[in-house]
Simulated assay, not measured.
Amino acid sequence: MDPRREWFETDYYAALGISSDASDKDITKAYRKLARKHHPDSSAGDEERFKQISAAYDVIGDSDKRAAYDEARRLGPAGLGPQMGGFASGPGGFSIRIEDLGDLGGIFGNLFGDGRGRAGRGGSMPMRGHDLETRLGISFRDAVSGAVTEVAVPDASTGGMRHVKVRIPAGVDDGGRIRLAGKGSAGSGGGPNGDLFVLVDVAPDADFGRDGRNLTVSVPITFPEAVFGADVKVLDFDGNAVTLRIPPGTPAGKTFRVRGRGVTTRRGTGDLLVSVDIVVPTKLSSAEQAAIEALRDVTDFEGRSGRRQREADPEPATFADTAGAQR
């Protein structure tokens, strides 16, 4: 369909579910919500609906195109004249030439040419392509270590989808935004392409968490280990063993810091924060039960007397490499 005719026959505001007086911010908000819902990579994706949403945003998401589109719609349901260089309206067949529309004619001329395969007056104005935005789900490990993958975005030249390679930087955060320069919509009249922005959704990991550049993990210890202290083996994110020295009297939830075993980014490398979790046994041998009962009988516990808990910074941990050499 000729783009000028499509403007008359398609309500881009309705395609995004907004009113014609919506603000630029509301237009972008509506587009992002619908694009996230209907993106072909999502579980409920609808490629045809995604194309409609993208086409609408390509016009009314651009202030210059939106102004021309609104004015074209205001002129009414005028069928395009047979010469395609102006608009004809009603049984009387009056015509309006682009040259007679003043500033608006300049906008139409620059956007579409004069209808005879020629640019508008003064030649076609270079216009930058529209920026595109899409979402990408990645694993926790790819977010920490970095990866190369692809995303699918609308291709206006074919009406289908095109695949764009995305390099995921090591240490990208959940909700991070990756900019791919020149990978958006194609420019017109020799103008540059727009950019593609990829919003990253990071899946959770079964063992590790993130706190900025730091990785977090929980390690179980026994009650005797918490009371008397112990050296406990912990695996870092790469599977290397480190030895965590638990001091006597360590409370549940205490956090220890293993330096340099976190996420590496361009800004530096974080640490591994290890929290201890005291495991309470659910099945006891007769000897264990007798020992715990004896402990209960001699324990004078004052821990529920309302003392304020102190919040201490994570303490540095002494650890060893996989060979067991102390560092």
Rank of each mutant, 00 (worst) to 15 (best):
S275M: 05
R261A: 11
D271T: 12
T265G: 07
V258N: 09
R261W: 01
T264D: 07
V258I: 15
R257G: 12
R266N: 12
V276M: 06
V276K: 08
G260V: 02
V274D: 01
R257H: 13
S275I: 04
L272K: 05
T269P: 13
T269G: 12
G249N: 10
P251L: 00
G268C: 09
V276W: 07
P247D: 07
L273G: 05
A252E: 14
P248M: 05
L272P: 04
R266K: 13
T269H: 04
V274N: 03
G249P: 04
P247F: 04
V258A: 13
G249T: 04
R257Y: 13
V276Q: 09
G260P: 10
I246W: 02
R267Y: 15
G249L: 05
P248Q: 06
F256K: 03
G262S: 11
T255E: 13
P248N: 08
T255N: 10
T269R: 12
D271W: 12
T264G: 06
P248Y: 02
L273K: 09
V263E: 07
R257S: 14
L273Q: 05
G249S: 12
F256W: 09
R257A: 15
I246A: 04
V276A: 10
P251M: 02
A252K: 06
G249R: 11
R257K: 15
T250L: 00
L273P: 00
G262I: 13
A252M: 11
T250S: 13
V263D: 04
R266A: 14
T255Q: 11
A252V: 02
G253N: 07
V274K: 01
S275T: 15
D271R: 08
I246D: 09
D271M: 12
V274L: 04
G270Y: 07
T255F: 02
G270Q: 01
V258F: 13
V276N: 11
I246K: 03
V258Y: 12
P248L: 02
V258R: 08
A252R: 09
V276F: 08
G253A: 00
R266F: 07
V274T: 07
